[in-house]
Nucleic acid binder design. Structure first.
Lengths: 340, 340
DNA sequence: GCTTACAGGGCAAACGTTTGCACCGGGTTT
DNA sequence: AAACCCGGTGCAAACGTTTGCCCTGTAAGC
């Protein structure tokens, strides 16, 4: 009644053949006769045999596990991204080892170390806000663990990455708002330090400029993502002599806070002022006042693309180990999504 | 320039000692002299040595990886739960292998198999909607992988589980609504088949009955969680000769859909009708019309508790392998959360 | 009847680490 | 002087699997 987990040895013993025969039979090696194969497979099934991945991975130096690290799992964007990654992973027989950095670099280090210890075959990571240089990821090179950056990517070229550029999306959004006959388009941006803010701002300026209008920086506000920060930004916008007739928020969460405040000021949402945003999170479908238009960054597709890229790298690594390493970049196009 | 990953052997070779000495030095074995230990540790650091977990786990028959399977990662409830699990895991040197069942039993099977192949040390799972019996989890027994069920648990006693009972929470909510002078409390429940619906309904009936009122089944509606289903439910409630002055929704998503419809009918949210709900999801803090009260099931705490329970089981497994297996159950108390 | 070919299968090494046991030299006890 | 102890270290087996190479028997070719 000892809890014996079936092994290849056990099968070999019972069938009076060698372990190598069993191993080859299970992997359909041509040198093994059909009869033997059948016998082995039958017994394997009967014993409920499952190969011990640890032994295999130990031997083969691969684990069929890939690590995924994101700042926060609870953000709609990342959980969709993870789903994309996971689906592609599963198709290819890989499983995901998972960690959150909670947007802190020390935590990120800790998780990266854990992944390294587990000897993941590869890593997909979306950097924490605090991460400006990625030394801690350099050590992965020594362990031959390829890294694909995802959405929050370093600006260097010497890395593999999948990302969106919000510049075009922002320009498109502005043009659409002009078409809705909005003339005074305001913008609530995120902190100036982060790259995503810059992309958006550049797009905003370009969009306004294309209409031969000059950019009024009073219309450009900033929030630290706190509810209060957003409220103040909206307050300033509403207090202008010529208040805006459209407000673009940094993302859908900021949008919600903005709407909340505007409602208190008796603004008719999406009538007096058109609200636009980025991300197109799932709850938009449920909320009372979703943005009329949101720039979707397709996190699921980004996740898929990142995982495919990693699979690709893992593939070619086998082919030619020390091959000229070309770094892969992939830009996922964004798209406007309208809420009726 | 060959990509050689440092191993214990390499260290031994360079220091002219045996691998066993290195191994023992690294784990601070008392039999090794301080001098040797220092030399070994120094070189190990210099070479950037990291133990190969695969080899260790293969040898020691544990992986320090635990599997976590939930229906959907994108649901606020589960992503918080995972965070709770993850935090406790990290404290204990464990990493999470992760999978979603997408509420489908076939997918659940697939993920469970992947976990088994990876030889996780334990598994925490929240069952898919489709899962009524858990045969596929029985096979884990043979591999000596303990399972802790989480939130969506089987009703059998012969399992380890962490869960909430919503009965009390519902009763409390109803009493609170009565105190707000609401007399006609309606309830939009989920599909009758799922256990969570029954708990809620029982609580509702108990809550109403405690006021010596009799339950009016016209006030109890049902939704299939689709936006349309919820809209219809609200429509029927509003069409009653005596419409409700409070509506409890199955969860915050249903709540949002309900509010959306009520707004169209010019109901003054949380004035004409008080809206209450379950889950207390994060976006409630951002939405224009959050429920005045939501029953929080503390998914983070549930996650923590589940992981602690698993750690406990893993601990005692080492102590006395074939010990009398007592199954652990833990009920996490719920609480009302008010939005001003 | 001899070589040749090939199908079918076994042997043993290897992967990196842990660990029970043996060994060795010098000091302490009888 | 023999027996013993003990700190410090090395040897080798073991974990489950894969895989290069070798072995055996039978049938075909001459």
């Amino acid at each position: 009644m000892s809890e014996s987990i079936p092994t290849i040895k056990e099968i070999a013993r019972r069938l009076n053949v060698s372990v190598s025969t069993v191993s080859r039979a299970l992997s359909d090696h041509p040198r093994i006769s059909t009869k033997t194969k059948e016998a082995v497979k039958e017994l394997a099934k009967a014993l409920n045999y499952e190969p011990n991945s640890k032994a295999i991975f130990f031997k083969q130096k691969r684990s069929f596990v890939i690590g995924v690290i994101v700042p926060h799992i609870y953000e709609d964007f990342f959980s969709k991204g993870i789903s994309g990654i996971e689906d592609v992973a599963l198709e290819n027989g890989y499983t995901i080892l998972f960690g959150q950095s909670h947007d802190r670099i020390d935590k990120e280090r800790q998780v990266v170390d854990a992944m390294k210890n587990q000897r993941v075959d590869g890593l997909i990571i979306s950097l924490s806000k605090e991460t400006n240089k990625s030394d801690h990821l350099k050590t992965l090179d020594a362990y031959n663990i390829p890294v694909v950056y995802f959405d929050r990517v370093p600006s260097l070229a010497g890395v593999n990455k999948v990302f969106c550029n919000l510049f075009e999306g922002t320009v498109d959004m502005i043009e659409w708002l002009f078409k809705q006959d909005r003339k005074r388009i305001a913008f609530i941006n995120g902190p100036g330090a982060i790259i995503a803010s810059k992309e958006r701002l550049d797009g905003y300026i370009e969009g306004i400029s294309r209409r031969k209008l000059k950019v009024d920086m009073q219309m450009v506000e900033q929030t630290d993502f706190s509810e209060e920060g957003t409220h103040k930004a909206v307050a300033r916008l509403l207090a202008l002599k010529k208040p805006p007739d459209a407000i673009i928020s940094f993302n859908d969460y900021v949008h919600m806070d903005a709407v909340k405040y505007a409602l208190k000021e008796h603004v008719k949402i999406n009538e007096d002022i058109l609200f636009a945003s980025y991300a197109n999170i799932s709850v938009n479908k449920h909320t009372a006042y979703p943005p009329v238009v949101s720039v979707d960054q397709f996190p699921y597709s980004q996740g898929e693309a990142a995982m495919k890229m990693l699979m690709d790298i893992l593939q070619h690594k086998t082919d030619e180990d020390t091959a000229a390493k070309a770094f892969l970049h992939k830009e996922i196009p964004v798209a406007l999504v309208y809420n009726s």
